[in-house]
Design a protein around this nucleic acid. Structure first.
Length: 509
RNA sequence: GCCGCGUUCGUCUAGUCGGCCUAGGACGUAAGAUUUUCAUUCUUAAAAUCGCGGGUUCGAAUCCCGCACGCGGUACCA
């Protein structure tokens, strides 16, 4: 049997990171099984449509390297792949269910249903449209056939509801959780077909999954409660023998406390919950994205893959290719996972280190341009190589290595206090003298400055070298001091030291 | 309320049909080593009486029952 899986988001806004994980798991499974990955847009709720959301979804998954074989953006033999484009298709299936006694027309107005719910609520009960209450409502079961036909002919709005059998156990076999059984008595007669002529999710997803020959439905746990309905639908249509297998994924939880990860949490705790930055077309609100924060797509993929799944070994760093090889549904965990920012950063750091010097140089060059600086490519690459291991995000580049390109204009007061001791101006003047007289080569300077001058005079290595660093860099962080001096060149280094001597001056302590 | 799912170090988790678990790894944390500084790297440590209570068994994190807690669902939303 050909494995065919689908990712079926609703274009109601930016794709949530939990949705991204669902897409990823579908993708990994499809690739590993040599199957097909399909993108289907579930836009049956026209009131929730958000412009740009569909494009966002495609762009986000493309950025992450999650590719499709068929879908709304590339077509395929089972199209169309947007449910609104399949609208004419669904009515006949709803009618088929009615004709076979699996569904019925219901004419209840939304206000009438609301009133009913309130009435029940007043008695501390919950109204449910089911086998015990449908006889009291306005539908083709409670109303005489004549009346039903009259209303239909008169064009009265109606919905189609599923007619759950009264008391049967329905078992859903879930690949992650095993058998889950629910009794039909507790399930309500869900609306299958809405009065606006569109199907609900329940009808559309069964019809489409069947027509598109989907073999495995891998989706979020929030669908588990309605899975029995879906199983019943397959049964009602007579498609049970080709029904897809189900796997309900655990939820992604917020980092603190409990509950589903939401947009708010991300903004509050300083990490994105969306793959890409999102500009809300209505409110104008901007939500940050992993891409814009500088996360590498491989890092996001790797991190997401391990939130709810593991390869069964202790390996944690895995490329997409390895994930595809190693992925298996059996190792998906049952419990929800809390998002952990530190771990996300760790993955990012790991993948950032795998970048080539050239790639980091590209990032750095872009930032230099923003600061109006042009520099020699070879020099930029050298800086990139030196700085790479010290940072996690591209945006840290400029802040941590600007001194390679511009002289410091101020000196860290804390560092002055700690390192610039009495007599330091004399030592710095001596450093200038050494740089000026000794051949400007790493080993020669090293010998003259570190060995002969500092060690020879039993000076404090930490103090002198850090003061030198303070003078040249402006603060006491950075790569190997002499490497830096060699890169800056003789005159630039001397100028910087001289300026520091003039600016900081002699300290008495 | 009702229904369903879940519950192992702070976090992600290993643990697949009971014994090799005096519960392993990773992130984070702490200490140390290396380094002229920072970062990296390396070493070590602390950290879960396996939600609680009962069983079953020679033996349970692993099986059964009850309870608690958390989450999800309970829309003409997906």
């Amino acid at each position: 049997m050909q494995v065919r899986v689908r990712f079926a988001p609703s274009p109601t806004g930016p794709l949530h990171i939990g949705g991204v994980r669902t897409a990823l798991y579908n993708y990994l499974f499809a690739r590993q099984q040599g199957g097909k990955m399909i993108l289907r847009i579930e836009d049956t709720d026209q009131t929730r449509f958000v412009p740009g959301a569909e494009q966002y979804i495609i762009e986000a998954l493309t950025w992450l390297g999650i590719e499709f074989d068929e879908g709304v953006h590339i077509g395929g033999p089972f199209g169309p792949y947007r449910q609104s484009d399949r609208k004419p298709l669904y009515r006949q299936y709803a009618e088929q269910l009615i004709n076979d006694g699996w569904a019925y027309y219901a004419f209840d107005k939304p206000e009438a249903l609301d009133a009913k719910r309130k009435e029940y609520e007043a008695q501390k009960k919950t109204f449910q449209y089911d086998c015990t209450t449908r006889i009291d409502m306005e539908n083709s079961i409670s109303l005489p056939a004549q009346e039903v036909n009259r209303r239909l002919d008169a064009g009265e709005p109606y919905v189609v509801r599923f007619k759950f059998p009264e008391n049967i156990d329905i078992t859903v076999h879930d690949l992650i959780r095993g058998d889950v059984t629910m009794n039909s008595r507790l399930l309500d007669d869900k609306v299958l077909f809405k009065s606006d002529g569109m199907p609900t999710y329940h009808l559309a997803n069964i019809v489409d999954d069947h027509l598109m020959e989907i073999s495995h439905v891998i989706r979020g746990e929030e669908w588990l409660p309605s899975a029995p309905l879906h199983v019943m639908l397959y049964r009602a249509f007579g498609w049970e023998d080709t029904m897809p297998q189900f796997a309900h994924l655990p939820l992604l939880l917020k980092p603190e406390g409990n509950g589903k990860l939401s947009k708010r949490d991300g903004d509050r705790l300083g990490f994105p919950v969306f793959p890409l930055e999102w500009h809300d077309p209505k409110s104008g609100e901007i939500s940050s994205g992993y891409r814009e924060q500088g996360y590498l797509p491989q890092a996001v993929v790797n991190m997401l893959a391990l939130m709810g799944w593991n390869p069964g070994t202790e390996q944690e760093i895995m490329s997409m290719e390895e994930l595809i090889k190693l992925f298996n549904i059996g190792h998906i965990s049952k419990n929800g996972a809390k998002f952990n920012l530190d771990k996300a950063k760790w993955f990012q750091h790991e993948y950032f280190q795998q970048l080539s010097d050239e790639q980091v140089a590209d990032m750095l060059e872009k930032q230099l341009t923003e600061h109006g600086i042009t520099a020699d490519r070879t020099y930029v690459v050298k800086v990139a190589a030196l700085m790479k291991e010290r940072i996690t995000f591209p945006k840290e580049l400029w802040d941590t290595c600007s001194y390679f390109f511009v002289a410091p204009t101020e000196y860290d007061p804390a560092a002055i206090k700690k390192r610039w001791k009495a007599g330091m101006t004399t030592h710095m003047a001596k450093v200038i003298e050494i740089l000026d007289t000794v051949p400007f080569e790493y080993d020669a300077i090293h010998q003259a400055l570190l060995e002969d001058y500092i060690k020879g005079n039993e000076l404090n290595m930490g103090s002198v070298m850090n003061s030198l660093r303070l003078a040249v860099v402006g603060k006491t962080v950075g790569p190997d001091m002499l490497t830096l001096v060699m890169m800056l060149g003789k005159s630039e280094t001397i100028n910087r030291i001289q300026r520091a001597i003039n600016t900081i001056g002699e300290i008495e302590n």
